[in-house]
Amino acid sequence: MLTDHAKLMQFFSEAEEVTGRKKLQKMIYILQKCNFPFEEKYQFHFYGPYSEELSLRVEELCNLGFLTEQKEEKKNFFQYRYDITGDGLDFLHQFQMDMPDMTEQIALLKAKSSRFLELVSTVLYFDGLSRDEIIEKVHTVKPKQNYTDMELDEAFQFISTISPVQ
């Protein structure tokens, strides 16, 4: 029961706070690609892999009082920040989960911008292709982002650094 919710709570307890829904979407996708057992289903959208299931599950966790969502108005948009609550920690402690430790990966992901994580998750989305094909595909699906060769190199380097769960 609610195991998928508990896995997300484990993520939030290790991340402590996450700023930005886009960043959250990409973090969970990248962790999934690193074999962490998150079950949310992703599809490719305008800004890369996106999971409606994740959006709704996070909304549920907020409505249950397990997470708080702070809405901050930026220049042309809103940004959301998520923090785990005491009730959330109590909920999490009731689960005996066999979830691998993801502290190191979360720290690496948190340190990066959402633009960079969008690039990394897009590269991972096309991971069945060769490096040259992936680069071509990234430029095709994200022409407006104008990702530079340096950013692409950094993305591939980041992917090789972030260790998948065995």
Partner: peptide, 23 residues
């Protein structure tokens, strides 16, 4: 015995969302 949550059957609500979350 089963708890069923709304996210078990995700439906695509309209979300204005955050900048660049989704179009």
């Amino acid at each position: 015995l089963e708890v069923d949550s709304s996210s078990d059957l995700p439906y695509d609500f309209y979300r204005p969302g955050e900048e660049e979350e989704r179009l």
